[in-house]
Design a binder for these strands. Structure first.
Length: 165
DNA sequence: AAGAAGATTCGCT
DNA sequence: GCGAATCTTCTTA
């Protein structure tokens, strides 16, 4: 299965809304490893979230992947998500993880090497990226750190664009 | 020690 | 629109 990332949120170093803010715990320890690894956690009793670590070792920070445009393995994703609606397969961070069968076993996996889960690049025209407010947080709510592809139907949440980065 | 809140989603009303 | 699901951390409600 594969998809194109169309929505992310940044949780940079020192961000009070980030999971690393209060230091290392058993759940978030992979956030403090080197960049390019998966940080996967479970929340609300229902949902896994996939993040990519983004800083040097010892600095806790990452990027939450909130939505992908499904590309390959769509029928498998439909089974895993128990829906036939293409638009709903991976629109939202919990849905994204469910569509890609991601759970805590993938926590700490190197996303920049061959393995069960990885990031790649594809040559395309430069996407139009918008920035707006992050969703579902209660601290540092005014920072425009949610990034999305303008016009994509596979993006979740409000799309009022605050600025173009 | 116990309860609430959290980077959410789903099903029922 | 609201409540439930139920893991991890933080607060003391």
């Amino acid at each position: 299965m594969s998809g194109r990332i169309v929505e992310t949120e940044a949780y940079p170093p020192g961000d009070a809304s980030g999971h690393a803010y209060r230091g290392r715990t058993p759940r978030n320890q992979s956030l403090f490893l080197h960049r390019g690894l998966a940080y996967v956690y479970f929340i609300y009793g229902t949902s896994y979230m996939l993040n990519v670590t983004s800083e040097a070792p010892g600095i806790g920070a990452g990027v939450l992947l909130r939505a992908i445009e499904p590309l390959e393995g769509i029928n498998l994703m439909k089974r895993l998500r128990k829906t036939d609606k293409l638009r709903d397969l991976a629109r939202g961070p919990g849905r994204l993880a469910a569509a890609l069968q991601i759970d805590r076993r993938l926590d700490g996996v190197d996303l920049c090497a061959s393995g069960p889960l990885w990031l790649g690049t594809a040559i395309r025209e430069t996407p139009h990226v918008g920035a707006t407010l992050r969703i579902g947080i209660t601290r540092e709510v005014h920072r425009p750190l949610r990034f999305f592809e303008v016009g994509s139907p596979f993006v979740s949440g409000p799309l009022h664009q605050l600025r173009s980065p």
